[in-house]
Nucleic acid binder design. Structure first.
Lengths: 207, 207
DNA sequence: GACAATTGTGAGCTATCGCTCGCATTATGT
DNA sequence: ACATAATGCGAGCGATAGCTCACAATTGTC
């Protein structure tokens, strides 16, 4: 029974104390990403910002990438909680109404933590262990597809998986572009207009 | 008349020799981006790959970012040459036909140098001097808008700028997602189907 | 209170980064 | 041929990166 040297991260935060350390690290990473950007987010700096020693950092996260991945996971989880709730709400609503609501939520979701969202979208290389961002996308596609399946009588689509891909990709791109372009804040009027347009786009396609 | 010390990049490649050096540097940058990724693309490595000394590199490009920007510019220029040509071709065609052709070209454009395109899309931080990637997008929007303007009788849109934004964003996102997801190569059949769907999406929206 | 896990510490290692500068080589003009 | 400008070179600087390790402090268990 090899005594497993302390090299690899321990990962199990069994005591409250260590749980707090882990949280502090993730919080600090998010704060630094927003304030200083990805390039200037070094592990040393993150540890300092968290009020934690660099050694402790490496007990829980093997790399800067792992830390950033934790931030992304948390952000995506926040978003998906909203998205899941709305899919449940609209499950029994007719297509037009449902799509309008989903589009509105897509925009809303992009505004949960816009500064962080922007950094994640613009600066994080989508490579290595960071590529699992797409798990979030896959869930969105699956949710949309299953909505379409239970409303297939309302629409005339052959391949609902493909239709879901087209809809989700378009909606996401529009929300993304709108939020990123308009610096920081999309006026309510502009948001309304965009919702109208995106809804027309998608509903026209589905029926 | 201060003799302007040799510090800042000279930039003017007046002789053939230096033109070749500059080209070698940009080529090498592209090759390294594709082979090793953005993070491992250091100026030292780029110079070595180009068969040029690090000193010479800094005579023409003040930073790694500048080099990457040159690669992006060249790639975008390649794409826009294709896109401009197609817009000219379809200028007098009816909406359905034109949109179908434009969608096809969007996908085609994403396949000009797919590996490089992927790296640029996934790994390059869109920050600092690298953010001007969007100039290319603006031209695409403008071209599409002016197409819509000269065919406004065929469609019922109030704000053609907005309509162009919606269409270009959607088409771009669909082409992008399709090319990036299917690793390396999109089957012809899948591409055909996608063209059909995207065309329906956009045409349905415009009319 | 004693002893072992668990958790926390930070000086400091090696590697690499972006980049400078003094000098060598090659082209141009006369 | 010579002078001058243009171009090319690369050892090496200071800074910072990611990360390790020997040790200290805290907590849980009996």
């Amino acid at each position: 029974m090899a005594p497993k040297p302390l090299t690899n991260p321990r990962k199990n935060a069994s005591q409250d104390r260590s749980r707090a350390t882990v949280d502090a690290l993730v919080d600090a990473t998010a704060r630094i990403l927003v304030r200083d950007g990805f390039d200037r987010a070094s592990t040393n700096r993150i540890a300092e910002e968290a009020g934690v020693s660099i050694g402790s950092l490496y007990q829980y996260y093997p790399s800067k990438e792992a830390l950033v991945a934790a931030v992304i996971d948390r952000h995506n989880h926040d978003i998906m909680r909203v998205v899941r709730r709305v899919f449940a709400e609209v499950a029994s609503q007719p297509v037009e109404r449902a799509v309008r609501r989903l589009v509105a939520v897509a925009i809303e979701a992009h505004r949960i933590d816009p500064k962080l969202h922007r950094v994640l979208a613009e600066q994080i290389p989508r490579t290595g262990r960071l590529e699992n961002v797409e798990a979030f996308n896959r869930e969105a596609h699956a949710l949309f597809k299953s909505y379409l399946e239970s409303h297939s009588d309302e629409l005339h689509a052959a391949d609902l998986g493909l239709a879901a891909f087209v809809c989700v990709t378009s909606i996401e791109a529009l929300a993304h572009a709108a939020v990123l372009h308009s610096s920081e804040k999309l006026s309510n009027k502009a948001a309304e207009t965009l919702i109208d347009e995106a809804t027309r786009l998608v509903v026209g396609y589905l029926k």
